[in-house]
Amino acid sequence: MALLSVEELSVTFTAKGRKDSTAVDGVSFDVDQGQVVGLVGESGCGKSVTSLALMGLLPGKGVKVGGRAEFDGKDLLSMSPRKLRDMRGSQLAMIFQDPLSSLNPVVPIGVQVTEILERHRGLKGEAARKEAANLLDRVGIPDPTRRLKEYPHQLSGGMRQRALIAMAVACAPRLLIADEPTTALDVTIQAQILELLKELVDQEGTALLMITHDLGVVAGLCDQVNVLYAGRAVESAGRRELFAHPTHPYAHGLLGSIPRLDAPRGEPLSPIRGSINDRIAWADGCAFAPRCDYYTMECLTGTPELTEPRAAGHQVRCVNPVLPKPKAEVSA
């Protein structure tokens, strides 16, 4: 039994006088204890909305959420707001992309960290302050007692992200959702934060749902990777399997379009044509078909199902997967 089991999650935004827009269109994945699961995709693929839906942070009006998301046997989507509030912060925690806008600018860091300790762990006064200093120290913020009195703007970007992580792990949550935790940071700071996340997962056995657009980050961190496109998972595999044999034309194309630091110079990149706006509804066929190099008329007849073309656990939603090409290259 997985710690978090998401089945056919869908999120549709509705507005008067406009067509419904479906951001997440049937996403399913499992996260086990101590596992790092990645949701990868470009902007507009529904990865952030997925995380907000799981945390119950979507607005109540104008949003239709469907499917199931069971955390430890309890459905998060149908849970009462009061119960969900108890869960958030203590069992489930989230790290956001932009650390400056996720921290309250007019409240010192210390108050923001102790708030969680008071709410969920019942610590008060000096004890809470001491624990807060411990937490900051643990995520690698030097001189934590001084930092507790400072405001978010006095901290550097990397330090703010560390403070957010400290708040997220304050109650030793069982599931940590990190939504693009390093996107706003420089590479050297990114490396520090990724090491910190890795360490937390290793030590505490926390499950981590990593949401990112950066395949490089995924390659170093995630056990299981789900590639999303237009609100659906198009490929799901262990990281080694995925990077060695990307099978969905989108995943394949994505890897082909990244300039690699270790690649020899002069080789042109092989980008995917068009943009995310060139897509069709999943109900009519494969949403990626208009951009796909491999598409046939078959792609336009109904939603393709997730199938297992290769190794166990490697699932692909495609009727014309990129199978023969890598093999031909190997034999040639």
Binding site: P142, S156, G157, G158, M159, V187, T188, I189, Q190, A191, Q192, L194, E195, D214, L215, G216, V217, V218, A219, G220, R239, R240, F243, A244, L255, I258, R260, L261, D262
Partner: peptide, 24 residues
């Protein structure tokens, strides 16, 4: 700087030597 750039390849990632700079 070079050692901090993630490479989209688990084989490389697992072997990569990292120099972590401290501070900002």
């Amino acid at each position: 700087l070079m050692s901090a750039v993630p490479v989209p390849d688990p084989e490389v990632e697992d072997r990569r030597e990292r120099i972590l700079l401290q501070g900002d």
